[in-house]
């Protein structure tokens, strides 16, 4: 009961007091990041070695020149394209598989051991074998991302189906609703919040795996660019690409969060654990 009250509060308050608090969070954000930049600047000046620690100004400059030269666009495009393919593939296979496993004991008994066997082997550990089978190129990062995203998606979908309140299924049954309608109108919406959590976790895992895969086994992409510029000892460019990796990771998560609140307005997911 108290949980529901809290969320009710949360949905109603932003409209009332949202504007000033948004401005003040923004100010606090700017202040904190400003102080951080100052410390960074002072540290760079103190160390005096732009290869080890370039000043924030140099990083911003190189970021702009990388954007101007189109290098950012091309590397980001190839990373994001891989992310889209690997992630979409994992979602398209993982969600239906999780739903089916949740509803059929036989399928669960059949598939679960394989998942439990493979899951502890992280996507990154597949990189050497993958490089051997797939070669250095486009397929390897995509495959590793698929693998990384797949398990969180399947498992959270399964958890979602498992945690559907038995009373709701009974309530549908006593209204005379049949099995397929129950799956579509009760089981699926009830597990949707968990599915979305799985998607977000999967996206995070895929993004991390992608950077590792590109660092070692791809001829393009953001991870590749970081390593490329490190070999050239152009640290400002390294940091610029590190910043971009963080930015895209953040934006993708933000997008999925927005999706979460848009399509599950009833869900009060108050406990978010990364």
């Amino acid at each position: 009961m108290s949980l529901e009250e809290k969320t009710a509060d949360r949905t109603s308050s932003p409209r009332a007091s949202g504007v000033p608090s948004a401005v003040s969070t923004m100010l606090i954000y700017l202040r904190s990041m400003g102080i951080f930049a100052l410390i960074w600047y002072a540290g760079a000046w103190w160390i005096g070695n732009p290869v080890l620690l370039p000043s924030p100004v140099a990083v911003v400059q190189s970021l702009f020149s990388l954007i101007a030269s189109g290098e950012v666009a091309s590397n980001a495009a190839s990373s994001l394209q891989r992310l889209a393919m690997g992630f979409a593939g994992a979602a398209l296979i993982g969600i239906p598989l999780g739903l089916l496993m949740g509803m059929s004991r036989i399928l669960y008994a059949l598939v679960d051991p394989l998942i439990e066997l493979l899951r502890p082997i992280s996507g990154i550990a597949w990189i050497p074998l993958g490089m051997f089978i797939l070669g250095v190129g486009e397929t390897l990062p995509t495959a590793i991302m698929f693998y990384g995203a797949f398990f969180p998606i399947v498992i959270n979908t399964l958890i979602g189906v498992r945690s559907v309140d038995e009373r709701l299924i009974q309530a549908a049954k006593v209204l005379g609703v049949g099995r397929s309608s129950i799956i579509l109108n009760v089981v699926l919406p009830a597990s949707l919040p968990n599915i979305l959590v799985g998607l977000r976790l999967g996206a995070g895992a895929a993004w991390t795996a992608m950077v590792a895969a590109e660092l070692i086994g791809a001829p393009s992409g953001l991870g590749f660019a970081v390593e490329w510029y490190r070999e050239l000892l152009m640290t400002p460019s390294v940091l610029a690409f590190v910043f971009l990796i963080g930015l895209f990771g953040y934006l993708f998560d933000k997008l999925l969060r927005a999706l979460q609140t848009a399509i599950t307005p009833w869900a009060n997911i108050s406990r978010e654990v990364i």
Partner: peptide
């Protein structure tokens, strides 16, 4: 409130992306 922006800014950076820096 004051540390939150820093943490939220660094959190999305995939750890492995920092490896080149760490090697440096």
């Amino acid at each position: 409130r004051n540390l939150d922006p820093l943490m939220e800014s660094f959190r999305p950076i995939a750890p492995i992306a920092l490896l080149p820096l760490a090697i440096l």
